[in-house]
């Protein structure tokens, strides 16, 4: 069983929903990233989504765009990100790491070489925003043959017939994007999300994560009640952005504590 599968299985036994924070690798500075990752785990992260900085993050709102720009100022690219995962793994062999990013950094080294290097760094899953399943059959094969989970997004506009196609390619979990828009937008409609998640569950036994638009304890709790994983991105990045070197870890710890309490309360 992959780390992601094990994590979901354990949480299911405990009757809990996974809390999955997102940070952009290298933001605010590459020196902070591994420490930040350990802090996330210590204060409740069940998995970590680690953003690979990209010059043209088309699916991201201003908050995560700025995070990418800060990281790129320090020349943090895919190679540096994989090194951060390695460094994290030296201490933590348990928490699944999911890379989230865009196709071109992977294209630049090639699908096979990327899969090899991700495996060597002990990455567990990869979300590639602009690789829809129709365009990346070989890539999915390279990942799966190394037990790395290719994780796909489903959106409010995904037709039911495409959901079938996508869940066939996916493993680990599927990620429901809870709104039409970029990351960080604030118009989550929990009733609609609930209906869509129920529809997705009719088509797959994979766990369903929900993200985009979850920004506080209230939305985290409401989402946790219907999903297997709650992904929080822009809110965490905003906290990182407004912190100083001195209070960065404590601010993130406080936010995580709040989110964790909310997520854990959902299914009690």
């Amino acid at each position: 069983m992959s780390r992601i599968q094990t994590t979901f299985a354990t949480l299911k036994q405990e009757g809990k929903t996974a809390l999955v924070p997102y940070i952009t690798a290298g933001d605010p500075h590459p020196n902070h990233t591994v420490n930040l990752m350990h802090t996330l785990v210590k204060f409740g992260a069940d998995m970590i989504e680690l953003g690979v900085p990209f010059s043209d993050p088309m699916a991201d709102g201003p908050v995560i765009q700025r995070a990418s720009e800060r990281a790129l100022k320090h020349k943090v690219g895919l190679t540096a990100v994989l090194q951060m995962v390695k460094d994290f793994r030296a201490v933590d062999q348990k928490t699944p790491i999911i890379l989230m990013g865009y196709a071109n950094p992977i294209e630049a080294i090639g699908a096979k070489a990327f899969a090899d290097r991700a495996k060597a760094a002990d990455v567990d899953g990869v979300i590639t925003v602009d690789y829809p399943p129709e365009e990346c059959a070989d890539y999915v094969q390279e990942l799966r043959s190394r037990d790395i989970d290719p994780i796909f997004l489903l959106s409010p506009t995904t037709e039911p017939s495409r959901v079938d196609l996508i869940v066939k390619q996916a493993s680990g979990f599927v990620y429901y994007v809870s709104l039409k828009g970029v990351t960080g937008a604030a118009n989550l409609d929990i009733n609609e999300v609930s209906g869509r998640v129920a529809d997705i569950r009719k088509k797959t036994n994979l766990p369903v994560g929900v993200g985009f638009g979850i920004r506080d304890a209230v939305t985290a709790k409401a989402t946790a009640a219907i999903a297997d994983a709650v992904v929080v991105g822009s809110r965490i990045v905003t906290t990182i952005e407004s912190s100083t070197d001195e209070n960065l870890l404590s601010n993130v710890a406080a936010l995580m504590t709040e989110l964790k309490t909310a997520v854990d309360a959902a299914k009690q």
Binding site: S55, M58, A103, P105, A108, I109
Partner: peptide, 22 residues
């Protein structure tokens, strides 16, 4: 330039070794 993916299609793209657009 190397082949890559940007703005919805695969094509020749000016980029650095990390695949960021220059």
């Amino acid at each position: 330039s190397p082949v890559g993916v940007l703005h919805g299609n695969r094509t020749y793209l000016m980029q650095d070794n990390d695949g960021n657009i220059i």
